[in-house]
């Protein structure tokens, strides 16, 4: 598996070192124990994507015309996840093999507590020696694409989700995403996502204004603006869990159940940009009318 090293990234207004480091990461794909890679690559990809979106908001780049670049960035990210996944499965299989072998030699010692994380993170432990032996022996991943897709679904990686829905949101920032529909069916709860005539509302149900800082409940997926939530939870003096602000939702929540909703944020940014463009076009039309 090879990565797409993107020389065009240089056109972005971003620090040259970030691009250099990103391309550097692509040259040396993840190894089984390189945890740093994990963090760095994710951060860099996120930073690059955010720069793209910021440039789009500022009107410097047209995202719709640079989908190929976004796809490259997203493609690299998926490949990276795939390598990581393959490495993990190989390692897991090897570990199981190792455990069985070890049990056969010494029946007295329990291997129940021997997890992957434990071995990898414990450098002084004598297992590290054995570990090198495990890694150096041949092994191949038996995982299929379906396994990988399921893995991605369970991973619930926000960055992956942004890459997946960006093309759809660019076409229609208020569209219902396939994932949301799935959630609705699974939860058997018709007001899980606020849907009005097949569109997602871009205003907070508490403040009734366009989102400034949208936050999503990890328990029930309802989205509210930070201001509205702060106000709601402040009114509850004893700090216990209180009912979700959405009508008829049965979840009990505190402020800590909410995280920033990147997708809703993206929807609002794209929507704002589209309406700004439409306004400009209208003004231009009016000017033309006057001239004619």
């Amino acid at each position: 598996m090879t990565f797409n090293i993107d020389k065009e990234l240089i056109t972005l207004p971003i620090h040259q070192n970030t691009i250099k480091e990103y391309n550097e990461q692509l040259r040396y794909p993840p190894s089984m124990f390189n945890n740093n890679y994990n963090i760095d690559f994710k951060t860099q990809t996120k930073q690059l994507l955010e720069t793209y979106i910021d440039c789009y908001i500022a009107g410097i780049v047209d995202l719709a015309n640079s989908t190929s670049k976004i796809n490259k960035l997203g493609g690299n990210y998926i490949k990276y996840l795939h390598i990581q996944y393959a490495n993990n499965t190989v390692l897991k299989n090897k570990l199981e093999q190792f455990k069985t072998d070890y049990k056969n030699i010494s029946k007295d010692i329990s291997t129940d507590n021997l997890t992957l994380d434990y071995i990898v993170n414990d450098e002084n432990y004598y297992f590290s020696q054995l570990l090198n032996n495990i890694v150096s022996t041949e092994g191949s991943s038996t995982s299929t694409d379906t396994d990988f897709n399921n893995y991605c679904k369970n991973l619930n990686d926000p960055l992956l989700k942004v890459f997946k829905c960006l093309p759809l949101l660019l076409k229609d920032p208020m569209c219902v995403l396939p994932d949301d529909e799935e959630n609705n069916i699974n939860n058997n709860d018709d007001d899980d996502v606020k849907v009005a005539g097949g569109t997602i509302e871009l205003t907070c149900p508490i403040t009734c204004r366009p989102y400034a800082y949208p936050m999503i409940s990890r328990k029930c997926n309802h989205v509210f603006d930070k201001d509205g939530l702060t106000n709601y939870f402040q009114s509850n003096e004893d700090g216990n869990q209180i009912k979700c602000p959405q009508g008829a939702c049965k979840a009990y929540l505190t402020m800590s159940d909410f995280i920033k909703d990147d997708i809703m944020d993206l929807r609002c940014k794209i929507y704002k940009n589209i309406s700004k463009k439409n306004k400009l076009n209208k003004n231009n039309d009016n000017i033309n009318d006057v001239i004619l």
Binding site: P205, I206, C208, C244, P245, Q246, G247, A248
Partner: peptide
């Protein structure tokens, strides 16, 4: 019930509802 704080009132309930 939807007008009762200890029952079903929620901030997302609108005038229309």
């Amino acid at each position: 019930s939807i007008l009762n704080e200890s029952q079903d009132w929620r901030p997302a309930i609108t005038l229309k509802q």
